[in-house]
Design a binder for these strands. Structure first.
Lengths: 307, 307
DNA sequence: ATTCATCATAGGAATTTCTTATCGCGACAA
DNA sequence: TTGTCGCGATAAGAAATTCCTATGATGAAT
């Protein structure tokens, strides 16, 4: 009890076109008996005669004609599978789901998306912005293809690629613009505004100032860097933001920015994806594009920060 | 350089459903390595990775998802091929092109078509009514599946099956109803109306009366039996028609019918089809249906003919 | 009647597909 | 860490299939 094979359907189709076993066999690059046998096998599998063989010509039966129409559709669909793959192979194509942490997304994405659309048209980019923890979960779950987060992540099952380092700058009210820049220890004396729990940037800032994490400050945590900057502008305290955010956040409120002296605080932003991801080659390319976007963005900021 | 096979697509589909090589292999009734190899082969043929294999689970890649949709459609279409054939196998189904000569068609077809529709629903009957010569040509050409004609045809390449014998009856004006029935020889003295050249019925009538075929009568040939009967009703002459035509033609004009004494004229109607026709079994069945229709029709006529 | 063209059949070779056995890797538990 | 386990990949030989060459059978044309 054989099953229908694509070979049989291809031979069948050739025979309908040529109406002649020998010529159809040539077209299929096989011998005439091989074709005869496969056609016969197909007919036996179906339990139906597809061709009427006479000495003069080979003609489709009535059923064969209906059959042939469907077979043509099937073969076309199968060939399209190959075409589809051939396209997907070289050009980067299809859906790409990128997760980005909130302290990077607003500053990097406008540039990045523009660049991706330019360099990889045909790529359908989906963006997910949320906390690192959630990104990692979704990544491991297969709901994301890659994530842009602060390194290290140290999650077995994921590979990390550094993208760029960024320094943190001090944000204080415009009035303090000329005051000396405090040392990390000095920061502890100031009212430092932080993001809510869960943001890695909060932990990084806390770590820089050697604050005791448990020492949760008053209830002034902000849900975004913009909020923090606005609070600083209102004279409530000071905060840190990544240098990349400066050009955007300078518009949020009348504040001044300052670099730290000596050992500057900072972090490494990187891309992570599953070790097993078949997109690895593409993602490596994407990483390059992200680096370029980050550099482009950095140039917009660097001159806004006084030494 | 392998080609895509249906097996591969079936295995692929099973793997998408189970997300597990071992279970998918079970579902396909093969070993796990066999499935692994075929999936790998498919991926190599396409040049694209379809599944992301991790220790935890087997997941479709983005491309794989698009691919899977199309594959499902293809497999469904292929399975439908089998269904289609299974239906066509037992039930008689599909197009059936029957040719019928004009001196039979009007009297047999109403009954026959009704019967075919009743007994073989799903059969798409096409009727072609024309002269024997043309029917045979179209039959040999494959434009007809079978023809109902007067036997014998004696065409190599065709097989003949008798359906029924029918007698010819004399048609004369109603006024002559009680006159004695002439002998074949007597017919020669009467004005015998005939069908045009090409109708086999014309030749059969001529033969019965022992007329010299070349002796073409005056220009009163009719193009149908109805025309002839109407002419008889108008007192122009006499004619012959098959007994099967009586019940219909008695409505054409005020005429009387009479059987011939002694050796009655008649002919054998039969079905012919190509020796090579794969429909032979079905056609044999159809022939039975035609016999029944003819008998049914005959019963409507027999009591209308005196003697 | 013979020849030619054409499809079917047969037997053995070549190729493909499958099975069993085993490896390698990552996850999980102790 | 270190086994242990689950799972997919790989290997090698066995089984099945597909194919080719040679040949048969049949009908048509000369």
């Amino acid at each position: 009890m054989m099953n229908i094979t694509l070979k049989q359907l291809r031979y069948f189709e050739a025979l309908t076109r040529h109406g002649h076993f020998g010529r159809a066999a040539d077209a299929c690059a096989i011998s005439q008996p091989a074709l005869s046998v496969q056609i016969k096998e197909l007919e036996e599998t179906l339990g139906v005669v597809l061709f009427e063989r006479s000495a003069r010509q080979v003609r489709l039966t009535g059923f064969g004609q209906d059959f042939a129409e469907r077979v043509r559709d099937i073969l076309r669909a199968v060939d399209e599978l190959g075409d589809l793959a051939r396209l997907a192979k070289d050009r980067m194509v299809g859906r790409l789901r990128i997760g980005v942490i909130p302290t990077v997304a607003p500053y990097l994405l406008p540039t990045l998306i523009q660049r991706l659309n330019a360099d990889y048209s045909g790529l359908d980019v989906h963006i997910r912005e949320t906390l690192t923890q959630k990104l990692i979960t979704e990544l491991l779950d297969g709901r994301l293809d890659t994530a842009i987060v602060a390194l290290p992540v140290s999650e077995p099952g994921l590979v990390e690629t550094p993208l760029f380092d960024e320094k943190f700058v001090l944000v204080r009210s415009a009035a303090d613009a000329d005051a000396p820049v405090p040392s990390p220890e000095g920061m502890r004396e100031m009212k430092l505004l932080l993001l809510e729990e869960g943001h890695c940037f909060r932990d990084q800032a806390v770590s820089f100032c050697n604050l005791r994490p448990a020492l949760a400050r008053d209830g002034l945590d902000g849900s975004s860097l913009s909020t923090l900057v606005q609070m600083v502008g209102a004279g409530i305290g000071v905060t840190l933001i990544p240098e990349m955010a400066v050009s955007v956040e300078t518009r949020s409120a009348p504040v001044s920015f300052a670099r730290f002296a000596g050992e500057e605080p900072g972090r490494t932003i990187g891309m992570v994806w599953r070790k097993t991801s078949p997109l690895a080659p593409q993602l490596t390319q994407i990483a390059t594009a992200v680096r370029q976007a980050a550099e482009e963005q950095r140039l917009k900021n660097i001159h806004l920060i006084p030494r």
